[in-house]
Amino acid sequence: MTIGIDHHGPVSLRVRGLSVRTRGDSPALLLDDVDLDLAPGQRVGIVGHSGAGKSMFLRALTGFCPDSLDVQGSVQLIDGSGEIQELLTADTKQRRRLATGAMAISWQNALQSLNPYQTISRQLGATLRLHRQLTADEVRSASLQWLASVGLSDGAGLLGSYPHQLSGGMRQRVAIAMTMCGGQPIVVADEPTTALDMVSQAECIDLYDRLCAAGARSLLYVSHDLALVGRLCTSVMVIQDARVVESGSIDQVRTRESSNPGASTRFSGILLAS
């Protein structure tokens, strides 16, 4: 079955009852029954303290969980015509098609998400070729364009570099270019600016903002920095102790907090303050 997801049309994401447990005789619950709806163009920030389950949620969602964990629930991609594709039960080929057609992912540590033994040119080129048939010249030209669009003006010099030869900020920009260059309608980012200084952080956030707006993409952005989430996202979901304790638009959360301060969670309280 071919659905519009392959053509980078508008795609919604619907998550129901997503749970993650360790396998074995006494399984530990790492993520408990999480629901999420992400409409085309919507931006949702996922916040929570370290170890709350934010990254686990993204890994379960995208299929990046290690084999030692048991993922249950439903992750559905819904294209413009209303056709639904289940991601968790998809076979390998379907998953490849869905992953390249619908969702792009950027992880926390660019040094671990970029192959340290391949040049930027090779890695960016391979990502571009996943989506389109391109000649070598076209790949080079598109690579330079994308590097320029993330503020790396010396693209020609960077293409021959290895990840360890770049600064943290430059690596993260390259990772953003690789995330965005496929044109997938959903972008998933797991604390992509954590290891950066304040200036680089602000610049990377601007890039996400600009590139997502330009492609009308929806964004799932994990962070423990509530100010960043407030700046980039329209909705927020607070995860605490592996469960969702608060969700809604940022304004709704603020209103709920103001009207019922006794029910405030630690994070929504901080969000209100920020």
Partner: peptide, 13 residues
């Protein structure tokens, strides 16, 4: 094999 760039290749079949 636990690095994200390897896991991504696994997901991409």
């Amino acid at each position: 094999r636990s690095y994200d760039y390897v896991r991504a290749e696994v997901l991409l079949a």
